[in-house]
């Protein structure tokens, strides 16, 4: 990573308050941090810590109560629906925990979907989607419907869909939450590889400490606040150093 990395997401004093009857719930309470271009950033926190809300705020899916979120120099929190949609088309990709593939569409059509919304010409988007599916190792599954594939394969389709439009930022919300350990590793490596190849920024939300080691930086969230931000040392092979790193960085902080 360079000496002066470029900020791609700036989160400034962001608050999200839910009202439940007379009670105010500070789901995100005055959080500030930056995410740099090309980095793999992990928002780590237990369930209910506010990490998912934070991700939703960053992606413009939820409106924040106060503060600012600047993405690629543009204020996300001020955008209307249409501008947000166009921003998502251009710069954002999403990987979901439950894959969120459209059941009636084949793998190929699912991957094409973001390009369809973007009005990419038919031929071009077919080629792009195919390339992407080949890259995630689903060469033989192009015409399969989600139901005909395993969880790991579905998530690969999800990843292909997230990356197909070459977004600058990909948000991943518990991308391995429904997968077994082996598949988790495959999927995580896949995300990291693709992102690295294209110098894309990943923002991943997880409660699983063992996933944090795939990241360049881990931001721990607890009760709506940033507890710590840790930069993980540049390493070559995460799998090998697996146990050591996690043992060091993850204490009892996130046990909940």
């Amino acid at each position: 990573m360079g000496v002066e990395p470029k900020k791609i997401i700036e989160v400034k004093n962001v608050r999200k308050i839910y009202r439940m009857g007379n009670e105010k719930i500070y789901a995100v309470d005055d959080i500030s941090f930056d995410i740099y271009e090309g980095e793999f950033c992990c928002l780590l926190g237990s369930s209910g810590s506010g990490k998912s809300t934070l991700l939703n705020l960053m992606a413009g899916i939820e409106k924040l109560t106060s503060g600012q979120i600047i993405m690629k120099g543009q204020p996300i929190h001020k955008m209307n629906e249409t501008r947000l949609a166009r921003f998502r088309q251009k710069y954002l990709g999403f990987v979901f925990q439950s894959y969120n593939l459209i059941g009636t569409m084949t793998a190929l059509e699912n991957v094409e979907l973001p390009l369809v919304f973007k009005r990419t010409p038919k031929k071009k988007r077919k080629t792009m989607a195919k390339e992407m599916l080949v890259k995630v190792g689903l060469k033989n599954r192009l015409q399969h419907k989600p139901k005909e594939m395993s969880g790991g394969q579905q998530q690969r389709v999800g990843i292909a869909r997230a990356f197909v439009a070459k977004p600058s930022i990909v948000f991943a919300d518990e991308p391995t939450g429904n997968l077994d350990t082996k598949t988790t590793m495959e999927v995580m490596n896949l995300i990291r590889e693709i992102a690295r190849d294209n110098h894309q920024t990943i923002v991943m939300v997880t409660h699983d400490q063992s996933l944090a080691e795939y990241a360049d930086r881990v931001i721990r969230i607890l009760d709506g606040k940033v507890q710590s931000i840790e930069t993980i040392k540049e390493e070559t092979n995460v799998e090998e150093e697996n146990n050591g790193v996690v043992g060091d960085t993850a204490d009892s902080n996130c046990v909940n």
């Binding site: 088309q89 251009k90 919304f117």
Partner: peptide
């Protein structure tokens, strides 16, 4: 409902 939500996250315009 969910499908529409997904479409929106993937950048589908409201008017579409």
């Amino acid at each position: 409902t969910k499908e529409i939500g997904i479409m929106k996250v993937l950048g589908c315009l409201v008017k579409d």
